[in-house]
Design a protein around this nucleic acid. Structure first.
Lengths: 199, 199
DNA sequence: GTCTATAGATCGATAGAC
DNA sequence: GTCTATCGATCTATAGAC
């Protein structure tokens, strides 16, 4: 049988899903306790600050994950075109091809928008700026790069909202496809041929 | 002094703003009573079904407004290009140039998504299909028209989310500008010259 | 039609046994 | 570290005076 949750880091992914599906106001401690399998006592042992600390911790983990897996490669990878292509594939995987919502977007639209305003702003700005930097490094003029980056980050959120609202996850994949196809040719991966030496 | 609220139809716009800003779960009756200036007794007199009926009534009113002011013109106006141009201007005005959220999007992402799933789906589908019909009537091939309509409706939602998250309402206007510029030339209003006889 | 008072459930959070 | 019991606040909704 799987080891029962007994570390704070084990609880974070479960908490993230609860906030994603119920929002901050809708994620009651009863729901959280049920989903994590932990009693309220255990939850307050891990998160003395209560629900607010739980959500903040989840946002911290999400920030760190995106920074390591998407933003830093976009800014620093030796091959910016490859990093941009990887971004689209990672985005599709992370959001489960449109079946999973963006927690940061959910919080931005919910009634806890003020409480997490700084973190929400930082997440979107970091994504936009990292993508703009990758486009610029791939040869796109700076002004156009900033405009395209804003459009991509914006449209991704729209794709998630529309996929959920229309109950058609395919909307998200089509949105990603339109965005990737619209980028300057030089900033897209030149080929999909397998790289020598990699499986 | 303004007449105090005393009809159900007078309360709906106030209710809409409360649900927009707090979501369904976050809009407590205390907040609703404070914003509308009505006591709980009066609210239940107008809406015996409670909060759920309030939200449903607001959605009904929004549906009717969009149907009359945007969807029907898109489907039936004699000049489809003019209707498309009017849609962008109406959209910018309705969402206060990015300072106002879309209630349907808020509900789609919140924890009441199941309760209002049918209405949410119908709103987005009606907008997409009406725009696709206008594009088709303006000469765009049917498949491309459907694709463009999905992109526009999706990106509008993304623009609202990003404008709120980045605390930069200008994101929304730039999103609308990019979308309008991308439509086939024949489906856009041919000129912005003032119409004779109108002020 | 609008109000106050309040019921009954659920909320976030705490205390303390084990 | 995890649980149960419970507190006080807040929630939705109802009852009834005016």
């Amino acid at each position: 049988m799987p080891k029962t949750v007994s570390e704070r880091s084990d609880v974070l992914p479960l908490l993230a899903e609860v906030f994603r599906e119920h929002g901050f106001a809708g994620a009651s401690l009863a729901v959280i306790a049920g989903r994590t399998g932990l009693g309220k006592g255990s939850l307050y042992h891990f998160f003395p600050g209560g629900k607010a600390e739980m959500a903040a911790s989840v946002l911290d983990e999400i920030d760190a994950w995106f920074e390591a897996n998407m933003f830093r490669p976009l800014r620093e990878d030796a091959d910016p075109s490859a990093a941009i292509g990887a971004m689209f594939r990672t985005t599709d995987a992370y959001f489960r091809s449109g079946r999973r919502l963006c927690l940061v977007g959910v919080l931005a639209l919910g009634d806890a928008q003020d409480r997490f305003a700084e973190r929400i702003n930082a997440y979107f700005a970091a994504w936009r700026d990292a993508l703009a930097e990758a486009l610029r490094r791939a040869g796109t003029e700076a002004g156009l790069a900033g405009d395209l980056a804003e459009e991509v980050v914006t449209a991704i959120q729209g794709g998630l909202v529309a996929a959920r609202a229309l109950r058609d996850p395919g909307v998200f994949g089509r949105t990603l496809g339109r965005l990737e196809a619209r980028l300057p040719a030089g900033s897209r991966a030149p080929s999909r041929a397998a790289e020598p030496g990699s499986s």
